[in-house]
Amino acid sequence: MGGNSKDIKGFVSRNSIWLILIILILAVGVIQPKFLSVGNMVTLISGEAVRGIMAFGVMFAILSKGIDLTIGSTAALVAVITASFAQEADYANRYFEGGKPLPAILVILIGLAIGVVIGAIYGAIIAYTKIPAFIATLGGQLICRAGAKMYSDSPISKLTESYRFLGHAKIGPVPVIIIVFFLMFAISAFLLTQTRFGKNVFAIGGNDQAARVAGINVERTTVLVYVWCSFCAALGAILLTGKTGSATPASTGLNYELDAIAAATVGGTSHTGGICRASGVLAGILILGVINNGLVMLKVDDNMTNIVKGLIIVGSVILDMRKNAKRV
């Protein structure tokens, strides 16, 4: 009974976000053909990679009916600490006077470990005290940002090329940061659909009581969600400092959590929990990227760009909710 047309309809409905992305790209491209150049696409994706990776983290928190507002500040803290260990030996204003930079791989591991520890701490607070994730991570945001500023009151720059490899280098024509971005997409998608962890997060977001009765360790899973989220933030910090070549305690990663949450949301992750697709979030990231990059190319002023972004965020959720309501 028209099964085929139903399948197509279902496919389009499930992937409507990609359709929106394509329309947006074409629309900007028609007005400004330079937008469609390979060079610009590389710039666009490199520009969104850091926020995108953070979105792949925060989508797990949102899926579990939580949120993570700490991301940007965690990134700042990780950024200043790793940067301080990765400054060139001959630089005059070294954070550690004298001394030599640590091997890049060690610095990166330290940075990721800091992220994991921070995530574990507030993950545990959320899981075991049951306070809302919004509150716990709002507090964490202030504390981490203050921590970054206490660690250093000025920007830390002149970082070694080996440390900057992930954020700055290219393999052939392709920036490493883009490779890392797509790798993180693949890993998130894998975690989400192919592992027990992913299924458990879906269950907790869908109905945490039922998840508990079904034998899921809700607390442990919640801690892992924020560990992952914070890990992504730390990786973002390493890419960001590598890309820009410096870490600034007051501004590195500022408001990145909001961009990440926006991308995850536009990508169809439901704030009432239980709905998330990695491919949707990828599209969400790219949509915001097209707006960030494309509207600049079209010389739209900054305020107008933000208005468009705001409308897209709100509009996408309205559409999603209607779509989900219809399935009842």
Binding site: A203, G206, N207, Q209, A210, A211, R212, V213, G274
Partner: peptide, 9 residues
């Protein structure tokens, strides 16, 4: 509903 099914899944 409360502690059995996970409705969306």
């Amino acid at each position: 509903r409360g502690s059995g099914i996970i409705g969306l899944l």
